[in-house]
Design a protein around this nucleic acid. Structure first.
Lengths: 333, 333
DNA sequence: CTGAAAGCGCTTACAG
DNA sequence: CTGAAAGCGCTTACAG
């Protein structure tokens, strides 16, 4: 026998038509039990597995979903754990729905064409875009082509593409409120890059909470890397030597800030209280263990997949879903 | 117009046969330049993109490759950076070859059936298996079915499946030799789990190098996690309070060991020199910065993809490729 | 160099 | 409930 068995061969062996085999394979209820069994035996004996390409050609479905990861997240071979978390969440949900995950790296302009062509070639039923820098045109352009899309994080700029995000503003407020409740009075922040929603929103949350308390804001901006956290922290100390607390918009930057504080001879939390954001694995092992805001990365991945599957199935979905964040109190604040 | 344009429509618009359009799309050299241009214009005007399913059905190729990640690597939401590195390397190479990456999570027995069926459905042209615990039957079973497979790391047990691995034995020897050259005399090791090749080989390297130097070996076993590194380190100190060096089989375990040494009042490297393995991002930021063995994770991913593509193309490939490791000397030893 | 035709392996109205 | 037949959108010998 050459190659894998086909429907045709199963039909012949079972003594029925191809249509009937197809019905059995696809679980149609209108098949007489006796015939169903004969067919199933033939399938088992031959080790038949449906050819996906042939099936897609007629159903116009592929049962695969693309997950687009922005290139920049990968460029630095980073300690950040968002990528595996996203993948994990998305794949859990897709697996349960018996869909396949196609991974594409690259939010760079040069990758757009490739991704668009791929989606247009109907190689996937829909697209999940993990997160973006700036006002990426990709989600909108796919959306316009009628391809189901869900974004991770609110797209910047004009957009009607549905998205799933984590409540960054709320998380930042939790962090700042905690510092206020601990009696801190000069609360600075190391903000993230202002061309990313996470950077923008975490700073907005800081500002809003502080505003309610009448304290003035003290801001330095980093780019979510450890080094930038140290640099920003030094700058904050120069700007206000009397600051007694810092909300750092990412754990990685918080580690950098910790180093800078130590160099400057400040004790944490005695002199300066510190709260991070993300709750990466290493946060528990920092010295002192880092108080931080936990965001449900895996949950976000799952929710994105869930929404996309609904969209693919033709259902209506909310234009946005926001997941709650949570403060994890350890020793640094 | 309903749906996306087809070959047929392009042919009609260009006033040629479907065969000719197909030739132009696939870059056949036997097309008259003038006709080629007419067709290309029609393609551009219509925004034609070939339907992948239809193409696969006749070519019997899908131009996609599956990357299988073991579930366990994901279970702990870990600090380990191997996964993104693998993905990065594989996707770089596949992108260059214009192949797609399908990601499947799960080396668990329950996932085997799903993966096998998927490969048999010809949804992918070949399979890359990132790494395995124990003697996983998956590579062999795919191999027997005639599906091109390449493994990351030598498969345990009997196997004829080609693999790409990093020279763990050599790396461990580099580490131990370095400690010997620094004049250390009582060199212990925290080994990795002995059901994983990386665990086994790094211990073998330690033993071999030590054996050449006539020193006795002092061994404790961890499971590559930070916590297990601390536990193992305490045990080593109890076993031999006079040890003056440790080769730890992973950086994460080395971080745990560092904590345990600090608790025990030992200075690193003054009292005890420490060498890790992996060179994860955090190694540079440890206190003291960690001397460790760097392994080319991205390079391994790329090489696996390269070998698999050759296999898919029908070429012969070596039964194994071993990539060199390198000692990165920092302050801990 | 180009076209007519067969065929890849399925699903799905449409009859019966 | 089952089968004959059409058709999904391509590629590729085979003629010419």
């Amino acid at each position: 026998m050459t190659g894998r068995p086909t429907l045709e061969q199963v039909a012949e062996r079972a003594g029925v038509s191809r249509a009937t085999v197809s019905r059995v394979v696809n679980g149609s209820p209108t098949v007489t039990p006796a015939i169903r069994e004969t067919v199933q035996r033939a399938i088992a004996e031959l080790g038949y597995v449906p050819n996906q390409a042939a099936r897609s050609l007629v159903t116009q479905r592929t049962d695969s979903i693309a997950l687009i990861l922005p290139e920049s997240e990968f460029r630095v071979f980073s300690e950040d754990q968002a990528i595996p978390g996203f993948i994990r969440g998305v794949s859990q949900e897709l697996e349960a729905a018996d869909k396949q995950l196609v991974l594409m790296v690259g939010g760079s302009p040069s990758a757009h064409d490739r991704i668009e062509r791929y989606a247009l070639a109907r190689h996937v039923d829909g697209v999940i875009i993990a997160s973006m820098h700036g006002a990426d045109p990709l989600p909108n352009s796919l959306h316009r082509m009628g391809i189901p899309v869900v974004c991770g994080g609110r797209p910047l700029g004009r957009s009607t593409v549905p998205y799933v995000e984590v409540d960054s503003v709320g998380g930042a407020r939790l962090a700042v409120r905690h510092l206020l409740e601990r009696g801190r009075t000069r609360i600075a922040t190391v903000a993230g890059p202002q061309d990313m929603v996470a950077g923008i929103d975490r700073l907005a949350g800081y500002r809003r909470e502080l505003q309610d308390s009448d304290r003035r804001s003290i801001v330095a901006v980093g780019d979510f890397t450890r080094e930038s956290g140290a640099v920003a922290m030094r700058q904050l100390l120069a700007d206000d030597p009397h600051l007694d607390a810092v909300f750092v918009a990412s754990d990685l930057m918080a580690f950098g800030a910790l180093t800078a504080l130590r160099e400057a001879g400040r004790r944490v939390p005695d002199d300066v209280a510190l709260v991070g954001f993300d709750d990466v694995e290493q946060a528990r092992y920092a010295e002192p263990p880092l108080t931080t805001v936990r965001q449900p990365i895996i949950g976000q991945g799952r929710e994105m997949a869930r929404q996309l599957l609904r969209l693919v199935a033709g259902e209506d979905i909310p234009s946005s879903v926001v997941l709650p964040t949570e403060l994890v109190v350890r020793s640094s604040a």
